[in-house]
């Protein structure tokens, strides 16, 4: 009879272990937030209860062990477990109440749009500089003197990067320049941190406004050097479109 209850418990535990420890190590995956894991477990448990109570017989088989446990009729080791559960439940409620009423020590969260939309005039521009080995090398030279202190060897780990939050972009990361068009980089390099729109908060970026120190042509060459050095290609419009 107890098996009817054991199965959903084991299923819930297995699902939890899968979501918590297996999903994060799957290719192209990431750790799931606790709230999402909790939601999935609630779904599993709700489904289990529904399944177990489809008929009167299965309902009794499901609830009887719980009732026997709570009333102390199970006896044996379960009797000790019963006292433990009866003692832990009020403490858990008290803990949750404290957690929801005590003031938080955590600073307020910040919403940050990593790649805010550029102004219209910087959308869809194509690099006017011929992609020659000379221009790429020239761009890399500019990168070494202007960008590398923070962005490092295209990996965002320059010697001057430590104090900046958010950290300088890692161009080798496939979620940075590889998913952006050259025109987007042109905007960000030319206008820098102060060029960010409202949604680009919290305005902590130290990116210089390079239009004060570099010509547009040099900025385009830096972009070419950046993509070449990072081993990435800019995102482009599909030629069939």
């Amino acid at each position: 009879m107890g098996g009817v209850l054991i199965r959903p418990i084991i299923l819930t535990v297995c699902i939890y272990l899968f979501l918590k420890f297996i999903v994060p190590i799957l290719p192209h995956s990431a750790p799931l937030p606790s709230s999402l894991i909790f939601l999935y477990l609630m779904l599993v448990m709700s489904g289990s209860v529904l399944f177990a109570t489809l008929s009167g017989e299965s309902k009794d088989a499901f609830f009887q062990p719980i009732l026997r446990f709570l009333t102390g009729e199970s006896g044996g080791a379960l009797s000790s477990a019963r006292y433990l559960v009866l003692a832990l439940f009020p403490l858990l409620v008290g803990w949750q109440t404290y957690g929801s009423t005590a003031s938080s020590d955590a600073p307020p969260g910040e919403n940050r749009t990593i790649h805010p939309a550029p102004p219209g005039e910087y959308t869809g521009l194509s690099n006017p500089v011929p992609k020659t080995p000379e221009n790429i090398m020239y761009g890399k030279g500019l990168y070494a003197s202007r960008c590398a202190p923070c962005h490092g060897n295209f990996d965002g780990k320059g010697f001057a990067a430590a104090g900046f939050t958010p950290p300088p972009a890692n161009f080798k990361d496939p979620t940075t320049i590889a998913m952006l068009q050259e025109s987007y980089l042109f905007w960000r390099i030319k206008k820098g941190g102060v060029g960010l729109p409202v949604e680009g908060m919290p305005w902590k970026t130290a990116m210089p406004r390079w239009e004060l120190e570099m010509s547009d042509e040099d900025i385009w060459k830096v972009i070419m050097g950046e993509y070449d050095g990072a081993g990435q290609k800019p995102r482009t419009w599909d030629e069939s479109e």
Partner: peptide, 25 residues
Amino acid sequence: ISSWWYFRADAPPDYSPYMYALLAV
């Protein structure tokens, strides 16, 4: 330099959450 971090002057101790927790228990 650094960029922005957070600063907070602690508030005087507030014992009401303990009272609420005790009531909930």
